[in-house]
Nucleic acid binder design. Structure first.
Length: 202
DNA sequence: CATAGGATCGCCT
DNA sequence: GGCGATCCTATGT
């Protein structure tokens, strides 16, 4: 079942980040359907979070998507090479987001391998936010895409490009590890927050 | 207009 | 453990 807006609109981004573990992230790009089970996420808590692109209420062309209501894709280019995929959460004007850091490939693995051929190590495939986007065919041009079917008739878009499905795979507490987020040393105290969630699947 | 730097990755030593 | 790749974004003049 495709997750609806109510899943993303909730006001606690850390709960959404945790509940995204075990869900299926799906793309339909270039006529190729690919998907992976989400195994690692990070929560970014908007204006109060020094690690967030929206810290202090920063609003630019790039971050505008984060201020939309939950259920949009926020994709940005990192180091000039990697498109990192985030899910926007909370209600309009609260710029919270969850970075998807790892997936376990599920469907369309042959398409993923073809995409990976250009510069991906076969080892740890799907582990790391740059690799998630590479495998699923997500690039920064897809920022602002809707992830839900709500209001689909109000737009000209007929089908989704990126969405998330519930497989009823519910990770146990003992299978989830929390730790500080990666690569945010510049964030001072906020670098210590354990907003990273890793799902160790059996 | 110019410029510095980044929520990374793979390959090298 | 270190480094280069590679380009958009944000900021400053």
């Amino acid at each position: 079942m495709i997750l609806g807006a109510e899943f993303y609109l909730r006001n606690n981004v850390t709960i959404v980040a945790r509940e995204l573990l075990g869900k299926l992230l799906v793309t339909n790009i270039d006529g190729q359907k690919t998907s992976g089970i989400i195994t690692e996420t990070e929560a970014y808590q908007g204006v109060v979070d020094k690690a967030s692109h929206a810290y202090g209420g920063k609003l630019t062309n790039r971050t505008e998507v984060m201020y939309r209501p939950g259920g949009f894709a926020y994709v940005y280019l990192c180091y000039g090479i990697h498109s990192l995929f985030n899910v926007v959460t909370n209600r309009k004007d609260i710029p919270h987001a969850v970075l998807i850091r790892s997936i376990a490939p599920f469907e369309g693995i042959e398409h993923m391998l073809a995409r990976a051929r250009k510069g991906i190590n076969a080892k740890n495939i799907g582990v790391g936010p740059g690799k998630v986007s590479k495998l699923l065919g997500i690039n920064y041009g897809l920022t602002g895409q809707r992830l839900t079917l709500d209001f689909i008739n109000k737009s000209k878009q007929k089908e989704l490009t990126i969405w998330i499905e519930d497989l009823n795979e519910n990770p146990k507490k003992s299978e989830i590890e929390m730790s500080p987020r990666i690569g945010v040393d510049y964030a001072g105290d906020d670098a210590l927050l354990t907003y990273r969630y890793v799902y160790n699947r059996k």
